[in-house]
Design a protein around this nucleic acid. Sequence first.
RNA 1: CGGUGAUUAGCGCAGCUUGGUAGCGCACUUGGUUUGGGUCCAAGGGGUCGCAAGUUCGAAUCUUGCAUCACCGACCA
Length: 568
Amino acid sequence: MRTSQYLLSTLKETPASAEVISHQLMLRAGLVRNLASGLYTWLPTGLKVLRKVENIVREEMERANAIEVLMPMVQPADLWEESGRWEDYGPELLRLNDRHNRPFVLGPTHEEVITKLVSNELNSYKQLPLNLFQIQTKFRDEIRPRFGVMRGREFLMKDAYSFHLSDECLEATYQKMYDAYCRIFDRLGLDYRPVIADTGSIGGEASHEFHVLADSGEDDIAFSDVSDFAANIEKAEALAPTGERPAASQNQAKVATPNVKSINDVAEFLKVDATQIVKTLLVLGECADGETAPLVALVVRGDHQLNEIKAEKIAGVASPLTMATDEQVQAALSCNLGSIGPVGLELTTVVDRSAAHLADFVCGANQNDTHLTGVNWDRDCKNYQVADIRNVVEGDPSPCGAGNIVIKRGIEVGHIFQLGEKYAQAMNCGVLTEAGKHKILTMGCYGIGVSRIVAAAIEQNHDKYGIKWPSAIAPFQVAIVPMNMAKSARVKETAENLYQQLSDAGVEVLFDDRKERPGVMFADHELMGTPLLLIIGERNLDAQQVELKNRQTGEKSLINISDIADLF
RNA sequence: CGGUGAUUAGCGCAGCUUGGUAGCGCACUUGGUUUGGGUCCAAGGGGUCGCAAGUUCGAAUCUUGCAUCACCGACCA
């Protein structure tokens, strides 16, 4: 490719709307352009990268015996009604009508379509197991798209779905896909971790997420500092403190705490550590339609954060987790949010394991501007249950039993689930067994955010000059950068010959034939992250050499022109 | 949807307080200059100042409403 015949579209300045580095560099290097919130056009250079990621994913899927299909992006609403997700999915599902006013959706995922397909196509156990995948555009009407293609509304995803007669067979395929995912991220040259995950709205049992580690990531991952354990913070179990709970040594006392509301305020006012305070959060409980929801009290230590995923799984707690409003709290307790405590509370009370291990602690008195000190469980407060409802924090013992928790940020680029029969059941997807009986299939599903990987790769591979592509996904393998080609026939001839030679050899080469000064060219190629630059100048031509510059290492060396072909 | 901020040339911004000829840098075009790290000089082209209404002799500027975009929260590949 010659730059003079290409759409380079590099920018000197960073558009103000771009917050994270990958988004800034994707705009500056001419990879994408914004069309509307969460919608992006892929420019030629960006598309080359996207296709390379896509091809690696495709190759590894095929190696894992998955078979490629392509399903429609527009899907009829009745499929979604059949699975129950027409109601369950919420406003993220973009719904639209056709000219006959028939309802459709833009597919955010394809469980319905694939299950319908398999249910129609498969009749016999002999056809199983089957693993189908596609690489296709998804649409999710995100509340807040951000960070460029990292969280776009329209994005490219690889989704695979496997079908089985038995859980053992599903587990075997799940493991195969897990391994395939590791191969994919290895080949992409990314620093990633598989982590234990919550199954979320898609449902099902076992699940792993694959995260690319980056400070700009939107997820917190809990690792063990000595073992391989890694889990999404939503899922990481906070163990009960070891040993017996200390014995009560203080009497319960009521203290006036005027205008002292937050945990920090209380800690400062009473000169106690936040770890000796409990905070009591009121959420809505489960109720039948039309009834007023009861309140449920959730108690965690002052320095801990409630884990909403864990909390909403507690029996009696409404899902999704909904915090009680000021008015609801006032109505039930006649006091403010900042003064609630578990003592004398006539509500279902769930206490986190760490909070339940405290003795002589401080809590709200269920009376404005008043707290209790020297409070002890069982003595002062009897009816409660203990559960794990907090987020793990750095330094907690790892739930795997070895080492302590370290927390890092990650970008979720893949997620695999063992779905079970959820969709197969709803859509009556089954086959005849060897015994001639109809049996519902069990399913797995496996996603990779292809376009998100491009952004994640940049987050992990950049410097102040621009992108440093891992060679597997660089848009060009090498750029030819001639110095002052307009003035030197020798330079021009060498560059042209080299370009011809490399192109003929199938090397992805970008020949910078613009009439620009060297600095401009260097800046552009460094911004675009081309792994190798071949710099052709008068000064080395007498020796039949050109300069070779490595973008990753910054190393420069001289190479004989005749040896260049051996580089690729 | 709640909170914050923005919207003036392709991009980055100034002008608005105190209403009166729409500006700067980059990019772009032309000519020259320079040529191993974003040269320099000159001449140009490009804007219903997000939209609508109001106040006024006069609105980018004041008022009101709306829209869009970005950032912080819940959702997710």
